[in-house]
C-alpha cells in the first residue's frame, strides 16, 4: 500500500467513526396526542437512547423551537449519552391556562442536534430530530389514567348471586316438602 492509499484509508475510517448516532423515544406524537385539562400542569419526559452497538457516547443539545406559550424545558439541555443508555431524559413542563377552550390544540416542538461535530469534507452532515406533538385541551373527566390498562377482573359478586338464589329456592322447596309430610302424618 503506498502512502497515498494509506492516508485515504485513515481518513475514511475517521469519517465513518464520527457519524452521530442517537435516538429519542416520544410518549406523544401526531397520532397519540397529550390530553390535558384547563389549569393542569404536567411534566413529561422523552428518553434519549444510544444504540448498544455504538462505540462511543453521543453528545446532544436540546432546544425548544415552539413552546406554544404553554411549555418549557426543565432540567438540563445538554446531554452525553453512552452506548446502550436509556436513562437520559428530556423533561418538559406543560401548563394549560385556566381559561383554555376545550378542544383547542397546541403544538409543541423541540429539536435535538449533536453538540460535537468534527468531520472533514465539503459538506458535513449530521443527524437532527424535530420532535413535534399536539396537546389537546380536554375535560378533566376524559383524561385517561396512565398507564392505560383495560384489564378486566372477574367480580366474585356475580358468582355469589346465582348461588344464593339457588340456595333460597332449594330451602323453600325443602320447607314445602317438610310441611306436606307433616300434614300427611297428622292425618
Amino acid at each position: 500500500m503506498d502512502n497515498r492509499n494509506l492516508i485515504f484509508s485513515i481518513m475514511l475510517i475517521l469519517t465513518i467513526s464520527n457519524v452521530f448516532a442517537l435516538g429519542i423515544n416520544s410518549p406523544y406524537w401526531k397520532d397519540n396526542p397529550l390530553k390535558m385539562y384547563p389549569g393542569e400542569t404536567r411534566n413529561i419526559q422523552f428518553t434519549l437512547e444510544n444504540s448498544i452497538s455504538e462505540e462511543k457516547s453521543a453528545e446532544a443539545i436540546v432546544s425548544l423551537i415552539d413552546s406554544s406559550g404553554i411549555s418549557e424545558i426543565i432540567g438540563k439541555t445538554e446531554f452525553t449519552i453512552p452506548p446502550g443508555s436509556k436513562d437520559q431524559k428530556v423533561e418538559l413542563r406543560v401548563s394549560i391556562p385556566d381559561n383554555a377552550e376545550i378542544g383547542k390544540t397546541y403544538n409543541i416542538k423541540f429539536s435535538i442536534k449533536p453538540s460535537n461535530t468534527q468531520q472533514e469534507g465539503n459538506i458535513q452532515a449530521v443527524i437532527g430530530y424535530d420532535v413535534e406533538f399536539p396537546v389537546i385541551v380536554t375535560e378533566k373527566s376524559q383524561i385517561p389514567i396512565e398507564p392505560i390498562s383495560t384489564t378486566k377482573k372477574e367480580s366474585k359478586v356475580y358468582i355469589l348471586i346465582p348461588i344464593l338464589v339457588v340456595l333460597i329456592i332449594a330451602i323453600g322447596a325443602l320447607y314445602y316438602i317438610y310441611r306436606k309430610k307433616s300434614n300427611l302424618n297428622n292425618i
Binding site: 469519517t15 429519542i24 416520544s26 444504540s51 468531520q119 469534507g121 430530530y129
Partner: peptide, 11 residues
C-alpha cells in the same frame, strides 16, 4: 422511536 444513522458523515 426516532432513530436514524447516516452511512457517511459528509456530502
Amino acid at each position: 422511536l426516532r432513530d436514524i444513522t447516516l452511512s457517511q458523515a459528509t456530502i
